[in-house]
Deep mutational scan, measured.
Amino acid sequence: TFTSYQLEELEKVFQKTHYPDVYAREQLAMRTDLTEARVQVWFQNRRA
């Protein structure tokens, strides 16, 4: 599960791009204290 802060950050990036590159995902992962893999999976699920 994600915190409301994490979801907010993820959604913010999703609004800009549905396909963030690895750099964007790593920045987001650091900001949200998630792994890059978790961020990647979240985007895959969000796009589905």
Rank of each mutant, 00 (worst) to 15 (best):
R38H: 09
R25M: 15
Q15H: 08
D21I: 02
Q40N: 15
R25H: 03
A48I: 11
V41H: 13
E11D: 04
Y23G: 07
S4E: 12
Y19V: 04
V13P: 01
E26C: 14
V41N: 14
E9K: 03
M30P: 00
M30C: 08
A37H: 11
N45R: 14
E26S: 10
E36T: 08
Q40V: 10
Q44L: 07
Y19F: 12
V13T: 08
W42M: 09
E8W: 08
L10S: 00
V22Q: 15
Q40D: 15
E8V: 09
Y5T: 07
F14G: 00
V22A: 14
T35V: 04
Q6L: 02
F14A: 02
A48V: 09
Q40C: 13
R46F: 02
T1G: 13
A48R: 12
T32P: 00
E11G: 02
T3H: 06
T35W: 03
L10Y: 00
D33F: 10
K16L: 13
T3A: 06
R38C: 14
Q27Y: 07
T35P: 07
V39Y: 01
D21K: 04
T32K: 00
Q40H: 13
E9D: 02
A29P: 01
T35Y: 03
E11R: 03
Q40P: 01
E9F: 05
Q40K: 15
Q44N: 09
D21C: 06
R47M: 05
A37E: 14
R38V: 15
E9A: 06
L28N: 00
A29K: 05
T3P: 02
T32M: 09
R31T: 09
A37D: 12
E11S: 03
R31F: 06
F2H: 03
K12M: 08
H18L: 05
S4M: 11
T35H: 04
V39A: 01
Y5G: 05
R46W: 02
V22K: 15
L34T: 05
H18W: 14
Q44H: 10
R46H: 03
D21F: 15
Q44V: 10
A29N: 12
R25Q: 05
M30Q: 10
W42K: 00
Y19Q: 14
A29T: 05
D33T: 07
D33A: 12
A24I: 13
T3V: 04
T35L: 05
T17V: 06
Q27L: 12
V41Y: 14
T1W: 13
A37M: 10
H18D: 05
E26P: 02
V22E: 12
R46N: 03
M30F: 10
N45K: 12
D33C: 14
L34F: 01
M30T: 08
N45V: 11
L7M: 08
Q15C: 07
Q15N: 08
V13F: 09
D21L: 03
T1N: 12
A48L: 13
Q27T: 08
K16S: 09
D21S: 11
T32D: 01
K12D: 04
V41C: 12
K16P: 09
V41F: 13
P20W: 02
L7A: 12
N45E: 13
L34S: 05
A29Y: 04
E26A: 12
N45I: 10
L10R: 00
W42F: 03
E26R: 15
T1K: 10
R46Y: 02
E11P: 01
V39W: 02
T3M: 05
R31D: 05
V13L: 15
L34K: 01
A29W: 04
K12L: 08
A24T: 15
Q44M: 12
Q44D: 09
M30I: 12
V41A: 15
L34C: 04
R47F: 03
A29R: 06
R47Q: 05
A48D: 10
Q40R: 14
T3R: 04
F2M: 09
V22W: 11
Q44C: 10
A24K: 05
A37N: 08
Q27F: 13
Q6N: 02
Q6M: 05
K16I: 14
R31L: 12
E8G: 08
Q40G: 07
Y19P: 15
